[in-house]
Nucleic acid binder design. Structure first.
Lengths: 334, 334
DNA sequence: CTGAAAGCGCTAACAC
DNA sequence: GTGTTAGCGCTTTCAG
């Protein structure tokens, strides 16, 4: 155990109060005293004990980030931005992976479930919107990428319906008519997948195209392997598509992989558009057309929400629904 | 602020001592008393205050993980494994991004620099091996992927020299003779890049191939863009290579991208091998040959090192150098 | 088996 | 400008 405030005080011949003032700058200290104290601090290699400080302040300076999987590029890019943005606000980030496990998500939302954090950002996956809405978190909460009606938490997300509509319309505008969707998740009641499906169907309707059930491929997870599998199913199916809208870039890259394996030309034989704008898509062969959510803004606004509530506990502003901009980035798979 | 131990005690009509025993199970409690206490806990929604517990215990249950960048697939995959492995040991992980900034790395190694953590895992980038060796961290420290002679910390890494030698020899075995390397970092004295260069040159020597300075391309970072740029330089150079060993998969994928842009066939015109075995490489077109370090073992052994020192502070075992296995995964770029 | 009380290291109200 | 001191909420001796 290292030295404490008391040790520094003794060495500098002052009281702990003075040392504390020097360290935290809470009150002015005479220049000569400050020098002596600083000297003692350096000699003893003193550093404040954060646990004690937290206990006193009732704050830890730590915020929690709960995402399904860190290894998924979209989440890791977002997590990176959040960590940087948090540092800018003098917070550090505690990371949790839920692996899309409902139990893990539930635990986080239970008061005390992870009560070291001043605030929590969670990207839910398996949990019902209803359950999310009913959550009574012990610290300010921000929900990412979810529809969250009447909930107790702020929410930050892109307009998934519109974005999916645009992606699909982009394919329609290119003359494609047999457009499949990869990434529905009927088993999950997953808000995001539902919204993207909605946008996809809306675009088909507007163009007078039929809904072909065989063209809606569900997946268990959003990994490349799932996309590859879905593409296989699609190509083995009765009618083969001339375009695919994948609900994530990873799915799209998996689909692209399968297309190549089978000797299909992209985009000539089949066009592909993804969602997320992860870096891999910029360097894939060919580079992937995708919907690009403004991740930087997601990070900034999420932390802003937390800050607003953490620093003003009396703040009773109703939960906000923040929609972050997105844009379609046309590259070479369409 | 929620309820405290005292509140529960008052409500259950017992002392805090008893409540504490019920919560922590430190000492046996009469069955009827325990029931009453549990009831009070439930009614009040009591949850222990972690800051107070940490202050008392001198431990936080948090370990720090410092990596250059979270958005880099290799690091995010590794971080994901570390987070999972940490949870298995009842730790949570606080993540820091250094962005390869020497100052940021130095701060972490300074006692108190990040003194909330019981232990620290750091993947150094910009810091001199000498400086690392001299570090006097305030908590047990594990260094990732670095050569760290006579240091004060445990180290976990693959055998970079051998691995690089194998990758290069693989290309030589395929009949390639003009083999370039992408990823040297002469400006950094970066241990990892140096070791891989060493292995690369060793393989060339063994095969009696000359060292062509033009074939050693340095990079500023290990991103796809750097690999793409290096590949451009290589192809614009005097002699064009028939194979490339990239020091990371990201660099390799960038190089692959450039090769495609220029209409080169991979592997016919130019073979490519990477390092890291990130998931993108498994689904790239064509799939990438790479050196695969056993990331799961890196995670496990790192945490084991920390556990050994955290739970036995008296432990004066000299710093360990742990070498984790790797294997060459031949896919379609060679 | 349970109660009373000390103290982990820090901050801030209250003196002077 | 500086010293003294009361807790923040918890665990853990020491008594009983």
């Amino acid at each position: 155990m290292s030295s404490r405030l008391k040790d520094v005080a003794a060495r500098a011949g002052v009281s702990v109060r003075t040392v504390s003032n020097v360290v935290s700058g809470a009150a002015p200290v005479a220049v000569e005293t400050r020098r002596r104290v600083q000297e003692a601090i350096d000699e003893l290699g003193y550093h404040p004990n954060l646990a004690a400080r937290s206990l006193r302040a009732g704050r830890t300076g730590i915020i929690g980030l709960a995402i399904p999987e860190l290894h998924s590029p979209y989440f890791s890019e977002l997590a990176g931005l959040l960590v940087d943005e948090a540092r800018r606000r003098s917070w550090t980030v505690l990371i949790d992976q839920t692996h899309g496990d409902a139990e893990a998500e539930r635990r986080l939302l239970t008061p005390g479930g992870g009560r070291v954090v001043d605030g929590l950002i969670i990207s839910p996956w398996a949990l019902d919107p209803a359950e999310l809405a009913a959550a009574q978190p012990s610290a300010p909460l921000v929900l990412l990428g979810e529809r969250h009606p009447n909930g107790a938490a702020d929410r930050v997300a892109v307009d998934n319906v519109t974005a999916a509509d645009e992606a699909t319309s982009h394919l329609i505008g290119l003359g494609r008519r047999r457009i499949a969707a990869i990434g529905t998740q009927p088993h999950l009641r997953n808000g995001t997948a539902q919204l993207r499906t909605e946008g996809y169907l809306r675009a088909l309707d507007r163009a007078g195209l039929l809904h072909d059930q065989d063209f809606q491929r569900s997946v268990r997870a959003l990994h490349r392997a799932d996309g590859a599998r879905a593409m296989d199913e699609l190509l083995d199916g009765p009618a083969s598509p001339d375009a695919v809208f994948a609900f994530s870039d990873e799915l799209a890259l998996g689909a692209l992989h399968t297309a190549h394996q089978r000797g299909l030309r992209v985009p000539e034989d089949i066009a592909i558009v993804g969602f997320d704008d992860i870096e891999d898509g910029r360097y894939s062969n060919p580079p992937l057309t995708t919907v690009s959510p403004d991740k930087q803004q997601i990070a900034e606004r999420s932390l802003q929400c937390l800050a607003d509530r953490i620093y003003s506990p009396a703040n009773t502003t109703p939960p906000q629904e923040i929609t972050v901009p997105h844009r379609l980035v046309a590259r070479s798979t369409t």
